[in-house]
Design a protein around this nucleic acid. Structure first.
Lengths: 134, 134
DNA sequence: TAGACCCTAGGTGCAGCGCACAGGTCAATG
DNA sequence: CATTGACCTGTGCGCTGCACCTAGGGTCTA
């Protein structure tokens, strides 16, 4: 049986992350009756490593919760997993597109501003650099 | 003088966004003594439009707060603005890189899983699709 | 005995709103 | 004139995934 920090090291995470997962119910440790410390089993190590891997593939913590639920009810989570990752891929594509557009707008602004002097407050504009865009 | 929804329309934002900006102190409307409603001035329209433009350039709301502060103290925010956008550009580059890597990992996983059948729970793996990665 | 380190619970902060809830306002209708 | 319904308002909580902090308590070593 492991403590919080031991589990965190075993899965290369932080103790805060482990506590967070306990708080939201992803992990349900037993307790050391002597001192109230959380006690994790070997199965929790497996779950913790699973969480890290799934997060690295873009699954959210609540996705992972759902996967655990299915799995603990004896159902195969695989069809679900395929659906979810497809969703996450789509979402990520959208986010990437938006961030790329943002990056372009920022680059353009910076480039344009290189040719413009700083403005002094004139009681009219707040910042004429920014207000010159669009 | 405008109400929340009137201001939101004038700046093409949602009423909730306007309320949010009031809550965090970006806008400081007066109040209608009759009903307690927020009342916005023409200057608030200018600020609201400024907020939208700045957000579109990647400035955070607290960046914008700082810009307002400088400007209201009669200082030119322009040098600051140049610094901030450079920071945001760098941050965004990092985020893009991470999301691109994520996208690649997701795509690879999906591709690999196409050749794998769904697994049935065997009391050992949680989801062997996910556990097959890395 | 002091310092260093582990643990607990709980709260706050981040970004930018969206949404829920309870209630007010206003024009149109019966 | 009263009521209905649409739309407005205010406030407060929730989301994501932790990191950090407080305030307390225990353990272990030098």
């Amino acid at each position: 049986m492991l403590t919080v920090s031991e589990l965190s090291k075993a899965a290369q995470a932080t103790p805060d992350a482990v506590r967070h997962y306990v708080r939201i119910g992803l992990l349900t440790p037993s307790r050391n009756p002597d001192n109230g410390y959380k006690l994790f089993s070997d199965n929790d190590i497996k779950k913790m490593k699973f969480i890290c891997r799934a997060k690295g593939l873009g699954f959210t913590l609540s996705d992972i919760q759902i996967i655990f639920d299915h799995s603990s009810r004896g159902q195969s989570p695989c069809p679900l997993v395929r659906d979810i990752i497809q969703q996450r891929i789509n979402e990520n594509r959208d986010r990437l597109a938006k961030l790329n557009q943002l990056q372009q707008r920022m680059d353009e602004a910076l480039e344009k501003w290189k040719l413009m002097p700083d403005g002094e407050p004139d009681g009219d504009a707040i910042c004429y650099l920014i207000e010159s865009i669009n």
